[in-house]
Design a protein around this nucleic acid. Structure first.
Length: 824
RNA sequence: GCGGACGUGGCGGAACUGGCAGACGCACCGGCUUUAGGAGCCGGCGCCGAGAGGCGUGGGGGUUCGAAUCCCCCCGUCCGCACCA
């Protein structure tokens, strides 16, 4: 017997071969049709864990498959190399984040190569490289110039213990800091924003143009949260309850203007700027106490549905006029009214809104129904369809008509107008951190906030900083970094010390990959035109909202600014989100400490067995339990393939020339069916069944070589070569080695095989014969049998006669050649 | 609460368009092979039944000649959003 398959001896050689030969390097003038496959660039956290293996195996399979299909596949890799973990490590160990990050990046690169993933390594892009920082800052300035960047105060999570701002993820469920355990406060600070809301409508509309999982689209639509309604003013009354004209009315937003006659009170947010003005002297102490208690509560606490409603709101003593009824109604403060949505003030209609109903009940407010509920309705607030009641000129109208009429009335009387609102907020991009892209702004006492000229880019953070656990960015202590010159007046200025959210870096890296060394622009329009949109984007569903929304925003804005092609409105044509890996029932992650390292498996069974196990275990989009993996089974299967395909194998050395038999014809047809099947399964990401297909076919070939008298070399060679071709994207090393030993050359640059449609159908097929929908018999018939013959064959079955027991068929359904159903 | 996905053997799953339920793998059982290995090869393996046969895709109803697949109700699991006026 020839030597057994030994993954170690061949995998190293082939990995090197792909790099040395530049098999997966592709230039921008490559004559082949362009195809862009992109796996989300990883945060460099050190050697790969199983989640990486799963992710990058899927992407690699596609890169190799499309390459064999004849495309010039752009397969780049890079690192999302800014971010908090490196900075925290720096504080702990004193090592500069760059050193830590680059070392981890090298380790991850090595891991990716080790599993056989192939990239055009020449196109490596890392967020922290000065050549990338430069263009991230350039884009910031471009957006700044276009009015897509602004500065404003915003509430942030402030940890009094760490004396710093925390990201939402660093605030635990109970509202405390994950590091110090202190109760996190809300604090207003000056922050930078990207005006993503400008694109809210387009971000919503264009979801219809991309081929993404419906789940992700639904999440994005919800996040954008478009609603239609009306915004109008509630006038402030004088002591007699008559609307004053000399005071600005209180603006409210509602999606139910049709219910306005039922507005019996108004509620404003505790942060609303007009609280003081609306509060009467006798209520001031209570209102101030309420606001103080709200400020001390965390967002989580504040947004929980629990808690007594009478304690969650307080009367201001002030009143406003319902313009529809002319009645003066009380104004309350409640913590559930958010300053960040609509106008920060609402009209309350308890009859049609359950939360308003509860609040009205708790605070003794009047309840007036303005939509007639059905007779059998026994709930409280009624939110359904029905005729308007108690609403004067709206009475009798349905909800839609009443809405439109109410809006017209508001417009005619100058109170307000129809309004579309979005839940989407502008993107707060500044972070009080060191290890991120510096914001290219200086502050001049004379000229104020000044964007830097582009020829001063990149603004780089200095290396000679000390990482001490003060909770402040080291930049704020570094005089050399802080002092700058004002670009307007040449006077002294102070640099911005905030850095950008790392989501900024990941919002355009896929564009940089198309033209990674360009030093005239972030990328050329031509390069982007050639490769974008990405044909297949692959990543975790955890990025369903933020990253994907931000990247879409960047693409649209860059396109409008002429940086990206005019017609490029979406960055990612198709998106695939693969499932995560669980161990012991919970998500495999560094923080949970339940990572499984692929090292031992790679050393033992090899990369191809591990890849195959990842592909086989479950449909790619589903979450998978590590306990369900069958590495040994896959390794055993690869041994079987090896034994079948390796030249000189005891299994196949009995093959000789000769006239093809029926067994040969059957193997030939099976071979063509395999090719057709795997092509289809790769195209629709059904990798688990593709692996089943390899195994099934291999079993068929084993049967052929072991049970037939005569085995023919031609038949066998064609079958095995086809198997190696279709398996090559999944098990690249083994297939490359066997192909070379058998045929010479390189399987991965071979053309993808095509199935002959004529060979996909057998001459005879098994037809199912049913009586009353139950299978009673199976008969072999010609595959081109006509309906009459099929029925005749069915009626001739003995078991059918038994089942019919003499009864006359009432009806016969024939679907030749698959099935005949006899109904009595 | 709202939205989404899903529920098939001992286990992971297959059945793409309504047409043979359980492909393929794991586990288990049996056999072969001078064979002791992390072997290899062949076979069996939904449940009940001696058999013929019957039952069977979370439960109940419906559409259909025919339903794992389509529709309605219920139960359960997972994920996302969570006072958005």
């Amino acid at each position: 017997m020839s030597e057994r398959y030994n993954p170690q001896s061949i995998e190293t050689r082939w990995r090197q071969h792909w790099i040395d030969e530049g098999t997966y390097e592709v230039d921008n003038d490559d004559p082949r049709p362009p195809f862009y496959v992109l796996s989300m660039y990883p945060y460099p956290s050190g050697p790969a864990h199983m989640g990486h293996v799963r992710n990058y195996t899927m992407g690699d399979l596609l890169v190799r498959y499309r390459t064999m299909c004849g495309d010039g596949v752009l397969s780049p890799i890079g690192f999302d190399s800014f971010g908090l973990p490196a900075e925290n490590a720096a504080i702990k160990t004193g090592t500069h984040p760059r050193e830590h990050t680059e070392r981890n990046g090298e380790a991850l690169s090595a891991s990716l190569r080790r599993i056989g993933a192939v990239y055009d390594w020449r196109r490596m892009v890392r967020s922290h490289d000065p050549s990338y920082i430069r263009w991230t800052q350039w884009i910031f300035l471009k957006f700044h110039e276009a009015g897509l960047v602004y500065r404003d105060t915003a509430p942030v999570n402030w940890c009094p213990g760490c004396q710093t701002v925390l990201a939402n993820e660093q605030v635990l469920g109970d509202g405390t800091c994950e590091r110090s355990g202190d109760l996190v406060e809300r604090r207003d600070m000056e922050q930078w924003f990207y005006r993503i809301t400008t694109y809210a409508q387009e971000l919503l509309d264009d979801l219809d143009t991309v081929d993404w999982p419906e789940k992700v689209k639904v999440m994005q639509r919800h996040w954008i949260g478009r609603s239609e309604g009306a915004e109008f003013g509630l006038p402030i009354p004088d002591d007699d309850g008559v609307a004053r004209t000399d005071v600005e009315p209180l603006a409210v937003y509602t999606t139910r203007p049709d219910t306005s006659f039922g507005m019996t009170f108004a509620v404003i947010s505790p942060e609303h700027p007009r609280v003081d003005e609306l509060t009467t002297d006798d209520r001031r102490a209570a209102v101030d106490a309420f606001r103080a208690s709200v400020a001390g509560r965390s967002d989580i606490e504040r947004q929980s549905t629990e808690g007594e409603l009478d304690k969650r709101g307080v009367a201001t003593g002030g009143r406003v006029v319902n313009p529809f009824t002319g009645q003066a109604i009380p104004v309350f403060l409640a913590d559930y009214v958010l300053m960040t949505y609509g106008t920060g003030a609402i009209m309350a209609v308890p009859g049609q809104d359950q939360r308003d109903w509860d609040f009205a009940t708790a605070h003794g407010c009047e309840i007036v129904r303005t939509v007639r509920p059905p007779d059998d309705f026994d709930g409280e607030a009624y939110v359904g369809e029905g005729p308007a009641i108690n609403s004067e000129f709206l009475d009798g109208m349905g909800v839609a008509e009443a809405k439109a009429t109410a809006i017209s009335w508001l417009e005619d009387h100058g109170y307000g107008s129809g309004k579309v609102n979005y839940r989407l907020r502008d993107w707060l991009l500044s972070r009080q951190r060191f290890w991120g892209c510096p914001i290219p702004i200086v502050y001049c006492d004379a000229c104020g906030e000044q964007p830097l000229p582009v020829d001063q880019l990149p603004v780089e953070a200095p290396d000679d900083v000390e990482f001490v656990p003060t909770g402040q960015s080291p930049l704020t202590y570094h005089e050399g970094f802080l002092s700058a010159t004002c670009p307007s007046c040449d006077g002294p200025a102070r640099r911005e010390t905030d850095t950008m959210d790392t989501f900024v870096d990941s919002s355009w890296y896929f564009l940089r990959f198309t033209d990674p060394t360009n030093d005239e622009a972030p990328f050329s329009v031509e390069a982007a035109e050639r490769w974008l949109p990405v044909d297949q984007y692959i990543g975790g569903v955890e990025h369903a909202i933020l990253h994907l929304m931000y990247a879409r925003f960047f693409t649209k804005a860059l396109s409008d600014l002429g940086v990206a092609p005019k017609g490029l409105r979406e960055p990612f044509k198709r998106l695939f989100t693969q499932g995560m890996i669980r161990l012991g029932g919970s998500k495999m992650s560094k923080s949970k400490g339940n990572l499984v390292s692929p090292e031992a498996i790679l050393e033992d069974q090899g990369a191809d067995a591990l890849r195959l196990a990842h592909l086989q275990v479950k449909p790619p989009q589903e979450d998978v339990d590590w306990e369900d993996f069958g590495i040994d089974g896959c390794a055993k299967f690869l041994q079987r393939v090896w034994r079948l395909a390796v030249p000189g194998s005891d299994l196949t050395n009995g093959a000789r020339d000769g006239d093809p038999t029926e067994a040969d014809a059957e193997i030939d047809r099976a071979t063509h069916r395999l090719v057709a099947r795997i092509t289809n399964e790769y195209d629709r990401w059904s990798y688990n069944t593709a692996v089943a297909g390899f195994m099934e076919f291999t079993n068929t070939l084993y049967r052929y070589v072991q049970t037939d008298e005569e085995i023919h070399a031609d038949t066998l060679a064609a079958a095995i070569d086809a198997l190696l071709l279709v398996m090559a994207p999944a098990a690249p090393h083994l297939c490359a080695e066997l192909w070379q030993q058998r045929n010479g050359g390189h399987v991965h640059v071979e053309a993808w095989p095509e199935a002959d449609p004529e060979k996909l159908v057998d001459d005879t097929v098994t037809m199912v014969v049913q009586v009353n929908g139950k299978v009673r018999d199976r008969v072999d018939v010609a595959s081109d049998i006509d309906e009459d013959a099929a029925v005749a064959a069915a009626l001739a079955c003995e078991k059918v006669a038994v089942a019919l027991a003499g009864a006359e068929p009432r009806k016969v359904i024939a679907r030749p050649p698959k099935l005949v159903n006899i109904v009595v």
